[in-house]
């Protein structure tokens, strides 16, 4: 009787306890990803993939065709010919751009000297709070958690969750991201943290007396166990030294343009390194 009267309240309490259990299990990496998440990723991947490709196609048609509407009106007799050529040109440009991107990615892959895998970005964060993206490679392809993700321009981020065919990548601009980095010129070290903005990070714990200048290149230090040493992260865009305090404030612009990122490389770890990392996480 009492249960029936307050049924909604009981069910709400039960669901909230369930949500807390999911949260807790996730935090302790007991349930990462859970069968439900695995199912969702697998279910949504084709939709995300086709919507992404569809949008790109529409955008390409928009820029290649619709923008020329006024010109086409003036040249009615050339309309059909122009459209054909425009379409061919768009296809050609698209292929050329993809070729250049993939060539750069391939050459970068060779330079790295670390086994790596190319992946495509199929979606970005579902809320405005985080800076994460989804890539089309997952556990089935050998991707695991905490693997570095890079682009020819520099460091992109690290994988934080891997389903069978999809992985979630935490970008270096996310507030949760922290990387051990150093200034290439002066070898000054610091921790690069995201600010939740697309084009700015903060380098923290840089001693006030350290030699840092605007335009300095920031690279990974190799410490921290995730990113190999020497990968370009960005450039210093602002340095503020207070007359007091231990540290100076250093703002860094990432070298990667996250708004235009389409393909990335996931740096694969060797099985031994994988085991070592798992042991470190466990302890």
């Amino acid at each position: 009787m009492w249960f029936r009267r307050y049924k909604a309240l009981w069910i709400s309490t039960l669901l909230i306890v369930m949500a807390m259990a999911v949260f807790s299990a996730h935090r302790r990496a007991l349930l990462s990803p859970s069968p439900f998440e695995e199912f969702l990723f697998t279910l949504m991947k084709p939709f995300q993939w086709s919507l992404t490709r569809g949008t790109e196609a529409v955008r390409s048609i928009w820029s290649g065709y619709v923008n020329l509407v006024h010109v086409q009106r003036e040249n009615r007799h050339l309309h059909r010919r122009l459209r054909e050529l425009e379409q061919k040109l768009t296809d050609y440009e698209e292929l050329k751009a993809a070729n250049v991107r993939l060539r750069r990615l391939l050459s970068f892959r060779g330079d790295l000297g670390v086994p790596s895998m190319a992946a495509q970005i199929i979606g970005d964060d579902s809320t405005g709070w985080f800076r994460t993206v989804l890539i089309d490679k997952g556990r089935r392809h050998g991707v695991a958690r905490r693997m570095p993700v890079v682009a020819p321009e520099g460091v992109v981020g690290q994988t934080i969750e891997c389903a069978l065919g999809v992985s979630k990548v935490l970008l270096i601009t996310d507030r949760n991201s922290a990387i051990d980095v150093m200034i290439q010129r002066s070898r000054t070290r610091g921790i690069l943290e995201g600010k939740g903005e697309e084009d700015l990070c903060t380098m923290k714990f840089v001693a006030r007396t350290a030699d840092v200048k605007e335009g300095d290149r920031v690279i990974t230090s190799g410490l921290g166990g995730i990113y190999p040493k020497g990968l370009l992260v960005g450039r210093v865009v602002a340095v503020q030294k207070q007359p007091f305090g231990l540290f100076q404030s250093v703002e860094v612009a990432p070298s990667v343009n996250f708004g235009r990122l389409e393909e990335v490389l996931v740096l694969l770890r060797s099985p031994e390194a994988e085991e070592g990392l798992s042991a470190a996480e466990g302890s």
Binding site: L15, V22, E37, S126
Partner: peptide, 21 residues
């Protein structure tokens, strides 16, 4: 809520609690 968290950088569970409420 759970699904929203799965596709964002958030830990799954937080949005579930708030959406139930």
């Amino acid at each position: 809520g759970y699904s929203l968290d799965v596709f964002s950088g958030s830990e799954p569970g937080i949005s579930s609690i708030l959406m139930v409420l």
